[in-house]
Simulated scan of single mutants.
Amino acid sequence: MYDDEQPLFSVSHLSKQYGPGCSDCKDLQGKQLIKNYCPSCGTVYACQDLFFEVYKGEILGVVGESGSGKSTMMQCLYFDLEPTSGEARIRSFKDGQMNIFNASSQQRSFIRNHILGKVYQNPASSLKMSFSSIGNIAEKLIAAGYRNVSQMEARGKKLLSHVNIPLYRIKEAPRNFSGGMQQRVQIAKALANNPPLLLLDEVTTGLDLSVQASVLDLIKTLQREMKISMVIVSHDLGVIRMLADRTLVMLDGKIIEQGLTDQILEDPQEAYTQELVQSLL
């Protein structure tokens, strides 16, 4: 049995840079940067020495403007990008003793198929738009080792029903669906193998307000019913206020403030966070 007071997922010293760096910007203490950009060599420091933890059943919100490094961080965590440096440990993989950034390609596939799920801003990044919706679920199940067709069909129907896709439409391709329905199919696919941790990257961006509300309500319901941990990235503090237990605020590739979401909203310490909160009022 795991101690729930210990983090399910921990990240330390996570950094991602584009470019070699130079003497003006390589020293972490003395970077001569404009925002996260070095004017001397052109290096962009997309993520800079990030630390955070996620606990069982918790929703961790990550908020910041476009270009703050939120999506780059999420891409590194799901192996869509290779970080420049850093460590990430998952309690349910090798008892949390292994830095997953050092994992082999086979181990990474196992982590993506069994331990982490990801919901992308653009559903086409995850879904095969010409496959049926239930076929998309089956693809994820097959990758995790399922071979029994009737079991996969039953699992797919259950998941799609859970995210409010009508059963008479489960053999339709997601390209025929609205943006909100595509996101719901993507959430079902991400949940196919009961991952303990779900990563959600700007999942309501571009959706109508009423559709946004239904997707957010679905996420909150799933988290409550399945006791799943989540990391939710958004540029919209209203989304974070609705969903997150704790919140990280990012700016120029750095975490500039973190704490309980209520605390961040009621007593923001950093000037940028204060501006965010003011924009919400």
Rank of each mutant, 00 (worst) to 15 (best):
Q107L: 00
E257S: 01
C76M: 05
G156H: 01
L281H: 12
Q278V: 08
G253R: 03
C25T: 02
S130M: 11
K157A: 08
L160G: 04
F131E: 08
L248S: 00
S71V: 06
Q121A: 04
I256Y: 01
F93K: 00
L276N: 05
D201R: 07
G259V: 12
F93D: 00
G21R: 05
F110T: 14
P7R: 01
D245Q: 11
A154M: 13
E257V: 00
L81K: 14
F51S: 07
D201Y: 01
A244I: 00
F9E: 02
E257A: 00
D95V: 11
L141R: 02
E153H: 13
Q29K: 13
S133T: 03
M226T: 11
Q183W: 05
A244L: 04
Q17Y: 12
I240T: 00
K31M: 14
R246I: 07
S210L: 13
V185D: 01
L281T: 10
H114A: 04
E58M: 08
A103I: 05
L8N: 00
M230L: 14
K220Y: 10
A173H: 08
N176A: 15
Q269G: 07
M98T: 14
I170P: 00
L81T: 12
V239F: 04
A213R: 08
Q32H: 09
L218E: 07
K220S: 15
I115A: 06
D236A: 08
E172A: 12
V163I: 03
Q263C: 11
L237H: 09
G21M: 03
P174W: 00
N36W: 03
I219G: 01
M73A: 10
D217M: 10
I134C: 04
D217F: 07
F79W: 05
V149P: 06
G156L: 09
I255N: 01
S150I: 09
K254R: 15
Y78D: 06
K56A: 12
S71C: 08
Q263T: 15
A154P: 08
K140C: 12
L222G: 12
K70H: 05
V231C: 08
K118W: 03
I59H: 00
K16T: 08
A138L: 12
E139S: 10
Q182S: 06
Q75I: 02
A124T: 11
G156E: 06
L127R: 03
S40L: 08
E202S: 06
I59Q: 02
I90L: 15
S23V: 11
P7K: 05
S109I: 01
Q182E: 10
L200F: 06
S178W: 07
L50K: 09
M1L: 13
G67C: 07
S23H: 09
Q263I: 06
I228A: 07
K227S: 14
F101Y: 11
N113V: 00
T204N: 13
E266Q: 15
E202F: 01
S132G: 15
G117V: 01
L160I: 02
L28K: 12
L81D: 14
L243K: 10
I232Q: 10
Y2N: 15
H162L: 13
I256F: 02
N193D: 04
F101C: 09
Q75M: 10
G69Q: 04
M242K: 15
G61L: 02
